[in-house]
Amino acid sequence: MSTHEFHSAVVPPQGIWWSPAGKQEKTWIAIAFVWCLVLFAMMPFWHFKGGQNPSGIRYRVTPEAYEARVARFVQEYQVGEEGGMPMVAPPPGADVYLVGRQWQWYPALKLKKGVQYTLHLSSADVNHGFSLYPVNLNFQVIPGYDYGLRVVPNRSGDFRIICNEFCGIGHHLMVGKVLVED
């Protein structure tokens, strides 16, 4: 076989095909490999230096226990009503309990800008998707799991929570509210 025979991919290679790659290929593989390491390193790096991570505090919880926790949370901090939903204003640093159920986000929240809260998410029935609109912060909400995320609203405004996981025929009606004040 001549040193540089070329054949197509339907031709069975004869003899030993384990031969060194050409220079251009080698260079590209090296560049691609380094790039892959960069892609990998960015994720741990962001845990140390970045402000947005999906780590959270994660527990198992039964839907009943979680609903009871939400009810207590509402009772403690309710300040009014909106759209037939209790409006709840927890103090800075508080644990906030939000539940997704077919088909509402309960309750409506009033938060302060620049303050940290621990926002707990869980579901009373099926999977739901927490999507803060128009910020575009998205988390999966799963029955049986409590996802506690430390959040700091960085601007004031009237935000929505859209459900972005299919949860049955009323899925598109499932819109909640978060009011952030200065």
Partner: peptide, 24 residues
């Protein structure tokens, strides 16, 4: 999606939901 539109969603106008949603 960058504007925040969910996938698997019937109504991009969110009509009938308890709180109105304004789209850009």
């Amino acid at each position: 999606g960058i504007l925040g539109m969910p996938r698997r969603h019937w109504d991009s106008s969110f009509a009938g939901s308890p709180f109105p949603v304004e789209l850009p």
